[in-house]
């Protein structure tokens, strides 16, 4: 049967399982969420009106966006340094960088979160070292607040920023850099005027990927946030399970999806995605 189909159809057939899976497991359930958002508790756009007007929801959204942006910038900075270091160092150092990226990558996020709690809490490793060294008198508030959430999220996100950045750095032609040097530019000048601009698509892409990923974080803020860093994902959970406002929870999901879609559109528009993963 199949062999009688024209060849291009055969290849298309191979592509079908994924869209079908997405349709069944994602699109159809999401249509249900959209329906909830306009029918619960009654038909209408009340839930969206509340999203627009309720200051407590604004606080959650603002906190989420703000935190994700900070995490995005910090993760980008670290990943940039590491990718740069990988690119221009001996293979021995490259192994070290790889180890630093891969090792945490394979440890469950839950384990890492509790690990951070042990390290950062008031009488945790970091604070007791600093106190023993006489650098501080009283413990720093490193966790059970927004700072703790940011530290753990940055740690989680660095690999996700590292790979797109590395791939865009590797596509830079060394001869261009050499030519710039040859024309008399200082090392710093070459970096700022020639190297950095060429990594911009990678930077933008990595930032958006990290940002989008962060929007849905649940475990890290719930554990390291000290009960006072309520982010969008936990807020949705709260509305679904604790207070039973499925309508408002669903509306928030729809809003987040619109936001993420917008960001992904930006990503596709301004950087070539295939180059970020190449």
């Amino acid at each position: 049967m199949i062999t009688r189909l024209p060849e291009r159809w055969q290849y298309r057939l191979l592509l079908w399982p994924l869209p079908i899976l997405l349709l069944l497991c994602y699109v159809i359930p999401f249509a249900g969420i959209v329906t909830w958002s306009v029918t619960l508790p009654e038909l209408g756009v009340d839930n969206y009106a509340r999203l627009a007007n309720d200051p407590s929801i604004h606080a959650v959204l603002w906190r989420t966006l703000h935190l994700c942006a900070i995490v995005g910038v910090c993760a980008l900075l670290l990943a940039f340094l590491m990718a740069y270091c990988w690119l221009y160092s001996s293979s021995r150092w490259q192994r070290w960088v790889e180890l630093c990226i891969f090792l945490p990558f394979f440890i469950s996020v839950l384990v890492r979160t509790f690990g951070w709690l042990v390290a950062l809490r008031n009488n945790g490793l970091v604070n007791s070292w600093l106190q023993d060294l006489g650098l501080i008198d009283s413990p720093l508030a490193l966790t059970r607040n927004t700072l703790g959430v940011i530290i753990a999220m940055v740690h989680f996100m660095v690999p996700f920023a590292f790979f797109p950045l590395l791939s865009s750095m590797r596509q830079i032609d060394d001869r261009v850099l050499l030519a710039a040097r040859g024309l008399g530019a200082s090392r710093l000048r070459v970096f700022i005027s020639v190297f950095l601009p060429q990594t911009l698509p990678g930077l933008l892409g990595a930032f958006i990927m990290v940002f989008v990923f962060c929007l849905g974080f649940f475990i890290i803020p719930a554990i390291l946030g000290g009960g006072s860093t309520l982010m969008a994902a936990e807020y949705v959970f709260l509305q679904m399970f604790q207070t039973y406002n499925w309508g408002i929870g669903a509306a928030l999901c729809v809003l987040m999806l619109v936001l993420v879609s917008g960001l992904v559109w930006l990503l596709m528009r301004f950087s070539r995605v295939e180059r970020l993963v190449g």
Binding site: P55, S56, A59, V60, R63, N145, T146, G225, G226, G227, S228, T229, L230, L238, Q242, T243, Y244, N245
Partner: peptide
């Protein structure tokens, strides 16, 4: 009152 007051409570206890 649980649902509506919990919302208020959490927005005030939030950082």
């Amino acid at each position: 009152h649980y649902g509506s007051v919990l919302d208020q409570f959490l927005s005030r206890t939030g950082a």
